[in-house]
């Protein structure tokens, strides 16, 4: 390489790096603006939850919290007759989401185990079937499901949200994709030689190996169960309402002028999600990425 060649390359690099720096700054600015756009509504919500309705009337935007939190909470309590009881909603959502998640991950792993470990005649057909029903939109089931639940008098109970979680096609698909490379059939084989029963092998050997996949899927299952609105809205009444159904009550007329209390009510309903999210954000982000590649 001649000297001039080298110089040309060097100057090119310099120009490139200057352009790169400008680009980097631009990217940072855009990203920070979008980040503000993502945080701001929640920030406004939390700050306004601590401000009185009069303060909000005067100026709706504030960056610093005020001292009206307790009063706002008292207002919320005063209107408990409207049905908005965040603690009960929290308890109900907790019960439904936890049990539904346990059902989903356990039985999806079991179904995936059936597909990965055993050779049975209908295996391929069964797996294709699971893939096909993955795409079925939930809306098609609603009317029939609602009528069925009423016929067997399970409305206003939590069972219609927990039992169906056992059949979660997309989770079966994910578990199967994860299990295939990570569970070696030799281990299953040697467990059999040691005299382990099939069910025991699944519980004691397959489940622990699947722990990372189970953790990711559990988070997503929990959150999506927690956030469900349509079915709980039509099936649960009174003290059986879940958190999102409680939220929908905040729309009522009695809250129309209680600005601070509405913000506080909204904050209360998402507080558990924020805690879960910031504690587990690393796994959640990794889970989204993993799910997309596998799915």
């Amino acid at each position: 390489m001649s000297k001039t060649d080298k110089m040309i390359i060097a100057s090119g690099k310099k120009k490139n790096s200057a352009a790169n720096t400008a680009m980097t700054v631009f990217v940072y600015v855009v990203c920070i603006l979008i980040a503000i756009l993502c945080i701001f509504p929640f920030w406004a919500m939390i700050v306004n939850a601590t401000r009185s309705s009069a303060e909000i009337q005067q100026r709706a935007v504030a960056l610093i919290p005020s001292s009206n939190l307790m009063q706002n909470y008292k207002v919320l309590q005063k209107y408990e007759s409207s049905g908005f009881r965040p603690l009960i909603g929290f308890k109900n959502s907790m019960i439904i989401s936890t049990l539904a998640t346990v059902c989903s991950v356990y039985f999806s792993t079991l179904t995936a185990y059936a597909i990965v470990v055993y050779d049975w005649k209908l295996k391929r057909a069964f797996f294709s079937f699971v893939m096909a029903v993955m795409m079925v939109p939930g809306q098609i089931v609603v009317v029939g499901f609602y009528q069925m639940i009423f016929k067997v008098h399970l409305n206003n109970t939590f069972l219609p949200f927990i039992i169906p979680a056992i059949a979660a096609p997309s989770m079966v698909f994910f578990m199967k994709q994860y299990m295939e490379p990570s569970l070696s059939l030799e281990i299953v084989q040697s467990a059999r030689i040691d005299g382990a029963k099939e069910f025991f092998t699944f519980n004691m050997i397959a489940l622990p190996i699947m722990k990372p996949a189970i953790a990711t899927q559990a988070i997503f299952s929990f959150v999506s169960n927690w956030n469900q609105l349509f079915l709980p809205l039509i099936l649960l009444k009174g003290d059986k309402r879940t958190m999102p159904v409680m939220v929908s009550l905040l729309k009522g007329d009695i809250y129309r002028t209680e600005y601070g209390s509405i913000y506080l009510g909204l904050t209360l309903t998402v507080l558990p999600l924020f805690i879960v999210y910031f504690a587990l954000s690393k796994y959640i982000i990794a889970g989204v990425a993993l799910g997309s590649v596998k799915g």
């Binding site: 980040a35 993502c38 945080i39 509504p41 927690w226 956030n227 939220v247 600005y259 309903t269 989204v288």
Partner: peptide, 19 residues
């Protein structure tokens, strides 16, 4: 931060925006 809105209950977000 960018993923955060996705995990929050849509019902809450709807009422938050209407506020």
């Amino acid at each position: 931060v960018f993923y955060m809105p996705n995990i929050i209950t849509a019902a809450t977000i709807a009422l938050l925006f209407s506020s």
